[in-house]
């Protein structure tokens, strides 16, 4: 058998291991956005990817449409029943919206945590090695997308923007395994229950909402939405429905298992939400006042 590693090769191997560790360390660092060479490469590959994926999506869409056609009759019946309710709901929503606006004017509060401006985007790629649930979409900084913005589909929240380049962005799904993947959420009921969504249970296919008070009356099927209190996501984006409640390991709080409203699979069109109220901190002038008041105490 020939000698496997000669001296020169051994040096190359050791050298590249050092470079590898350095590079991995660099890319896992807690950084705000990509460096410019990375953005540049991403834009170029993204261009090629967009060219390739559009016809591929069309091709896949064709089969989905055929499948849809078979269910059309059933769906139509069900939808007709629902449409009657919708008209009533619509008029209610319009009236409430107007009420809300007027009342806001009265108390001189123009911006709300719930306001956002949606940016439409198409998914051009999904991480093929699937170790980490990320998508690439075809809109980037050029359209005002910034890291940490919420990404939704028509059904509900799916994730957040991880990083951006000029013309593409990477979206980290809620199902990705990352301890920093946290969403401040609220269980909507007679009295709202707040908690933090951290993590995804692969076997149950459910999101985990921890730190729900042990005495809160949460029932199966209650809606969970973003609370807007985390500072980045707008308020009121649907996340999912309660599947069940389990006490946590110390019995002081509960953990809610939430069935996500949006499916994380086979995504094609998504929306990035640009929140119009960008900060949760009071404006600088107000902040000073707060400090003074605290000083007096």
């Amino acid at each position: 058998m020939p000698q496997f590693f000669t001296n020169k090769r051994l040096i190359i191997l050791l050298g590249s291991i050092i470079v590898l560790v350095a590079l991995i360390g660099f890319s896992l660092r807690d950084r705000e956005n990509l460096s410019w060479p990375e953005q540049f490469v991403k834009d170029i590959v993204g261009l090629g990817q967009a060219v390739v994926s559009k016809p591929a999506n069309g091709f896949a869409g064709f089969f989905d449409e055929v499948k849809d056609l078979r269910n059309t009759y059933e769906e139509n019946k069900e939808l007709k029943a629902r449409i009657e309710k919708t008209a009533q709901l619509e008029s209610d929503v319009a009236r409430l919206k107007k009420d809300n606006e007027e009342l806001r004017k009265v108390i001189d509060k123009k911006k709300s945590l719930a306001d956002y401006e949606p940016v439409q985007a198409t998914v051009i790629a999904r991480n093929p090695d699937r170790w980490y649930d990320v998508l690439t979409i075809d809109q980037g900084e050029a359209r005002g997308i910034q890291p940490d913005m919420a990404v939704i589909t028509a059904e509900g929240l799916i994730g957040k923007v991880k990083n951006t380049s000029k013309f593409t962005s990477t979206v980290q799904l809620l199902s990705a395994y990352d301890s920093r993947n946290r969403v401040s959420a609220v269980i909507q009921g007679k009295s709202n229950v707040y908690g933090v969504i951290e993590g995804y249970n692969q076997e149950e296919k459910a999101l985990l909402m921890t730190k729900v008070p042990y005495d809160s009356k949460v029932k199966k099927g209650m809606l969970v939405a973003t609370s807007g209190k985390g500072g980045v996501f707008p308020e009121g984006l649907i996340i999912g429905k309660i599947k069940k409640m389990v006490p946590d390991e110390f019995g002081l709080t509960q953990t809610a298992l939430i069935t996500p409203a949006a499916s994380f699979n086979d995504l094609e069109h998504v929306m990035v939400t640009k929140r119009s109220m960008t900060t949760v901190f009071p404006e600088k002038a107000e902040r000073k006042q707060v400090l003074v008041e605290e000083g007096n105490l």
């Binding site: 890319s27 590959v45 993204g46 090695d129 990477t170």
Partner: peptide, 17 residues
């Protein structure tokens, strides 16, 4: 591998090496 790392996974160096 380098392109793969940057565009898909975000962990530089893995596929490249």
């Amino acid at each position: 591998g380098f392109l793969f790392d940057i565009f898909y996974t975000g962990v530089l160096g893995a596929y490249m090496f």
